[in-house]
Simulated scan of single mutants.
Amino acid sequence: MGNIIEISGVRKVYRIGNEKVVALDNIDLAIEEGEFCCILGTSGSGKSTLLNLMAGLEKPTRGHIKINGTYIEKLNEKKLALFRQNNIGFVFQSYNLLPTLNAVENVSLPLTFKGVPKHIRDKKAKAMLEAVGLGTHLKHKPSQMSGGQQQRVGIARAFISNPAIVFADEPTGNLDSKTTKEVMNLITSIAREHNQTLIIVSHDISIASYADRIVHIMDGNIQKIEAVQKN
């Protein structure tokens, strides 16, 4: 398989007052189509900045990021939003569900933005919720669900458009160990089934063990990349 993401010479510098803070120094990284890659590092290591750059949420100070053949740093905001809509799904640590919407409505949001008719998006959303074990919670709002259930809704939303790439930023950070295992098994099984590329950012080595490769990042630099041995 070919590379779906290619990062070359990426540097990210933030200006805080008169000071420059180097978040990423000189990053080179290639990720294959269908790969599960974990970006592992402590708080402040630059891992979330790297994810934000790959997801097109921020632009690099220098360097290139090619996703699915497109140099995303060259896209304007409108084209970038469209690119994300067509290629990328997100799973967030804090779930990011809209409190006034029920599970079906939250999951169908990406399809709403694409202009998919309501009866089709509702049908797909219900099927996704059943796939993540929430077939009895279709009309529940976030306040009526546990953290694990809310994250399952978040997972269903991320995958509903069948994106080529799913980014997950500390997706189990607010969950207990049992729910963490359930959520990780769910994310990986859906991605494997559809040959989707999965990139997860974490500080937790037990989460990294699910990946095909672990990219260790510290002080804005990649320290090493290791393949995970599967039992």
Rank of each mutant, 00 (worst) to 15 (best):
T70S: 06
A125Y: 01
C38M: 08
N87A: 04
N18M: 15
L111F: 02
K114F: 01
T49Y: 12
I7Y: 00
Y14P: 00
I65E: 06
G115F: 00
A125V: 00
A23Y: 00
E6N: 05
I31K: 03
H64L: 13
D28P: 08
E35T: 06
T100K: 15
T61F: 12
S108H: 03
F83Y: 07
A81W: 03
N52A: 10
G17P: 10
I39K: 10
S8M: 12
K124C: 03
H64M: 15
N76C: 01
L24G: 06
I72V: 04
T61D: 10
N18D: 14
E73Q: 15
S94I: 05
S94V: 01
R11G: 11
P117M: 10
V116S: 03
A103I: 11
C37R: 14
E32S: 11
I4Q: 05
I88R: 03
L82M: 11
R15Q: 15
I4N: 01
T112C: 13
K78S: 12
Q85C: 15
I5Q: 07
F113Y: 15
P110Q: 03
K20S: 14
Y71Q: 07
I72F: 06
I72C: 08
A103Q: 09
I88M: 12
L109S: 11
V13Y: 06
A23P: 00
Y71R: 09
H119Q: 10
K59G: 11
E73K: 02
K47R: 09
I67K: 06
K79L: 09
M54H: 04
R121Q: 05
A55L: 15
L29D: 08
N26A: 07
G44L: 13
V104A: 02
G41D: 10
N68H: 05
K124V: 02
N18Q: 15
P99A: 06
L111T: 04
G9T: 04
F92H: 04
R121C: 01
L82I: 11
K74C: 11
T100V: 13
L57T: 04
A125M: 02
K74G: 04
N86Y: 06
Y14E: 07
V22R: 10
A81D: 13
I67T: 09
K123Y: 12
I5C: 01
V91P: 01
N76F: 00
K123G: 00
N86R: 13
F92L: 00
V21M: 14
C37P: 11
F36N: 02
M54I: 12
C38V: 14
A23W: 00
I120M: 09
L51N: 05
E19T: 11
G17S: 08
L97D: 02
G34E: 09
G69Y: 03
R62W: 14
Y14S: 07
L80H: 04
V104T: 13
L53E: 05
G46C: 12
I31D: 01
T61W: 10
E32L: 04
L29W: 00
K79S: 14
F113S: 06
S48P: 06
L97F: 06
D122M: 12
R11F: 12
